[in-house]
Design a binder for these strands. Structure first.
Lengths: 258, 258
DNA sequence: GCGTGATAGTCATCATACAATACGATGACC
DNA sequence: GGTCATCGTATTGTATGATGACTATCACGC
């Protein structure tokens, strides 16, 4: 038996049983991906440069074509390289860095969540401003519908999480800029819910007052957008999200002491 | 002969050719990736759920194992799924969202670049505001140094691209929020340069006046940050980036007619 | 000089086989 | 009855060969 992946850090003598969850078995494909990615990010392979052929990579790394092809497929999925049939594989132009991503692991701490909310605040404030400037009549209607949907959810004593998200998305849609939609899509799903879902189920009246307050902020945002008041929309959105951030901070702090 | 994607974007008098930038060559692997990703993000496959075996996917989609394996490799690289030899493939726990990314392919068109600049504007405006509220003395010093570095570069009749980027980064650093730094790191490298690099080399005096104007905007931002004036810093940054966006729009439009 | 066709290089896909690993079942052993 | 070694099966990991499709290049004829 050959000692393959020695990634097992054999901490045999760890008295406290600190057995790691599991370290990913370093298979050949992963190895090849890392080495190729290193070649690219280190600048050793300039953007637009042609990668070695599959055959050359095979012999260079001593692996089969399957491994090479899966590594190439992985890098292509990450956008680092593009392949063209009959021509070869090339380093993607204009990409010296991996895609922007927020590590979900880091979201554990309160501070990190608040940091993400700050980033979101900047994007959404601008989103509201642009929506006020550009929203088309159908988009304005969609925003109004989303607002009313929250009203109905509150009436049914629900948390209105999905409806809240839908309103923010409708505003992002109204910017006409797909990046705002995608950004919110990426962040919103797991940032928005937490800030309101923590209220204890028993305190329905408290939750309702809380939702009514939020809905008042929503109304201010929508009113400003309808009035084509970009600055007012930005301000209203800023108030909404900063107060939401404060609410979350207090809830989290209270929970921390519970 | 089928009209495949002519990736040659060559704008050789693109009178009314309406040649698409490039339509993605829908190969089987890409198709499989999309379909699997849709199954996951749609919630059809819960986190932790086991994917069908490769054999089942082969017969289900009517493709070979190579295609299935490359699709799985791509999703694994994106962190959506994890595979375990001898067991199967599983939807990654706690990952309902794909990383936020801006497809570099889309950056070809002027409209897309402007859209990205709008997103950046939102983030940087907030960045300036937070920097005004929180910048520590060393961070303020770093911002001042970056400002002076631009002065020196202008004195040397250089484009000051790197120095400009450094100033924006210093401000992002001063927020104390790493997300702002990473976001700017991701966007800035290939958005900022373009807006100033297009000036013709011959017109040095025009470039210098242009840079002096930008530097005036920079000074206003830094002054507001130093004065702990968050609203003023936001406003100054907004002015800076909106005017930069306009400059880029005009430059690009002029180039388009050239 | 300019289109045109042949040709070679390369990726895309398929098919098959073997290796490595994990899990459950079975049965021996205490 | 419980524990553990063994084995068989299922599944992914890796290797290899073959074929098709696509592209760039170059010689060729006009």
């Amino acid at each position: 038996m050959t000692i393959r992946h020695t990634s097992v850090a054999l901490s045999r003598s760890t008295d406290k049983l600190s057995l790691r969850p599991l370290s990913p078995p370093r298979n050949l494909t992963r190895e090849a991906v890392d080495r190729l990615a290193a070649e690219i990010t280190s600048g050793n392979l300039q953007p637009g440069a042609r990668l070695p052929t599959e055959q050359e990579m095979m012999s260079a790394m001593g692996v089969s074509r399957t491994v090479v092809r899966e590594a190439v497929a992985a890098l292509r999925a990450e956008g680092l390289i593009v392949t063209r049939q009959g021509v070869g594989a090339f380093v993607a132009a204009g990409v010296l860095r991996r895609p922007f991503r927020i590590d979900p692991e880091g979201l554990r701490s309160l501070a990190e969540v608040l940091n993400v909310m700050e980033l979101r605040l900047g994007v959404e404030v601008e989103s509201a401003g642009l929506a006020a400037e550009r929203a088309s009549p159908p988009q304005l209607r969609a925003i109004g519908d989303a607002l009313k949907a929250i009203d109905r959810a509150i009436e049914r004593n629900e948390t209105a999480i999905d409806e809240d998200y839908a309103l923010h998305m409708a505003i992002a849609e109204a910017t006409g800029n797909g990046h705002f939609v995608r950004f919110l899509e990426y962040l919103g799903r797991y940032i928005i819910p937490r800030q309101s879902v923590r209220v204890e189920p028993g305190r329905v009246s408290g939750q309702r007052a809380y939702l009514e307050k939020i809905q008042g902020e929503h109304r201010a945002i929508v009113a400003a957008i309808r009035g084509r008041d970009a600055a007012g929309a930005r301000e209203a959105m800023r108030r909404h999200l900063t107060s939401g951030r404060e609410r979350y901070r207090k809830l989290a702090a209270a929970e921390g002491e519970a």
